[in-house]
Every structure is written in structure tokens, then in C-alpha cells.
Simulated assay, not measured.
Amino acid sequence: MDHSEKKHPLVEVWNSYSGIRKEKKHIAHIPPIERIIGEMFAIGEFYYYVINLTNSTLSHHHPNLLKLHGLTEYPQNLKEIIDLTHPDDIPFIMKAEEKVIQKMMELGKENHLYLKSSYCFRMKTARGNYELFHHQAVLTMEDEDHNLIQSVNIHTNIHHITQKIRTPY
């Protein structure tokens, strides 16, 4: 049976909206998951990048990364992102990441892809000052042994909401 032929109760409602195509059409272009995730969690100006956890390389950068930090080239390694972080916040980030690892170990490898971590720290902006950013990491890929391979990291400037770092522990 062709599943696209199945009727469901929402078809009538959706068909009442003129902005939905009525004839059958295959989806040719699906928005990248990084964009969907990034926009879903954003509460201010944001960007995302994909991090390869096996070697700390970055890819699939959102263009706002350049604008928000005044960069001319996309960072290729996580160290370049960390270099934008206020030096006084590095110990806090290390402690937050330790807590994340502890929780991941407690929950077990089989639950990795259901987790999202988040905390805040200051980053240098295009204006040359440090502003508070909300960091979120969504684990997106693992190998056959449940070892993590990839994460989408989302950074949202929340300076317009608060300037105070809140400790998660």
C-alpha cells in the first residue's frame, strides 16, 4: 500500500489552507537538520555549527557566526570558538562539561542521542566587548557502539535578556 495515499483527519483541515500544494509532489529539498534545530531553540540572535567530536573540527556553520563575532572566516576547530570565550569563564565551562559527562555516564550510552546540554558563558562580539551567550549541544550521531561522533552546537546571544551567568550545579 502506498502510504502517501492514506487519508487522515488533518487532510481536510490542511486542504482548506491555500498555501499547501494540493497535487502530489515529492519533497526535493529538505532543510538541513542543523538549521531546524538551531532555529527551534533560538531566543535571540544565534548561530550553530556541527562539531566532529572525534577530532574537534567544525563544519556546517550558520552565517551569523561571522556577523556576531566579527570574523572573516569560519572557525575550523573548536579551539577557535573557545578563543572567543571570556578567559574568566573557561573554568566554569570546564566544570559544566564535567557535569554533563557525569550525567551522560549515569544515564548510559544508549541514551546519548536523547540528550541536550546547555549553559551560559561570555563571548567576544563583533563590537569588541563580551556578551552572554547561551550554549546548547545536541548530540546527533554515534557509531555502532554508541560512541559519540557528532554534535550540533547552538550559541544564542542572550545579552538582551540577562548579563548574569547562572550556575547549573
Rank of each mutant, 00 (worst) to 15 (best):
H3T: 11
E5R: 15
H8D: 06
P9G: 07
P9M: 07
W14S: 09
W14R: 15
N15I: 01
S16Y: 03
S18Y: 10
I20L: 09
I20Q: 01
I20K: 07
K22A: 09
E23G: 14
E23Q: 09
K24P: 00
K24I: 01
K24E: 08
K25I: 14
K25S: 02
A28M: 15
H29K: 10
H29L: 14
I30R: 14
P31A: 08
P32I: 13
P32Q: 15
P32G: 06
I33H: 04
R35T: 14
R35W: 11
I37E: 07
G38V: 00
E39Q: 14
F41V: 15
E45A: 04
Y49V: 00
V50K: 13
V50C: 13
N52V: 03
N55G: 08
S56K: 09
S56I: 09
S59E: 11
S59T: 07
S59R: 10
S59Y: 13
H60R: 10
H61R: 02
H62M: 00
P63K: 09
N64C: 05
L66D: 10
L68T: 05
L71V: 01
L71G: 00
L71R: 06
L71Y: 01
L71F: 00
Y74D: 05
Q76L: 07
Q76V: 13
L78I: 09
K79W: 08
K79D: 15
E80S: 04
I82W: 08
I82L: 10
D83I: 03
L84E: 06
L84Q: 04
H86S: 09
H86N: 09
P87C: 00
P87I: 07
D88E: 12
I90G: 02
P91K: 14
P91Q: 09
I93T: 07
M94T: 08
E98F: 05
V100W: 02
I101L: 14
E106I: 11
E106K: 05
E106N: 10
E106T: 13
K109H: 11
N111L: 10
H112A: 03
L113Q: 11
L113E: 11
L115D: 00
S118A: 10
Y119R: 01
R122A: 01
R122M: 02
R122D: 00
M123F: 04
K124S: 06
T125S: 13
N129L: 08
N129A: 09
N129Y: 00
Y130L: 04
E131R: 03
V138W: 01
T140P: 05
M141C: 09
D143I: 03
D143W: 05
D143N: 13
E144Y: 04
E144W: 10
D145C: 07
H146A: 08
L148G: 05
I149M: 14
I149Y: 08
I149N: 07
Q150T: 07
S151I: 02
S151G: 10
S151E: 07
V152Q: 09
I154T: 05
H155F: 12
H155L: 14
H155M: 11
H155S: 05
H159T: 11
H159K: 15
Q163A: 13
Q163W: 02
T167Y: 12
T167L: 03
T167F: 10
P168C: 04
Y169N: 04
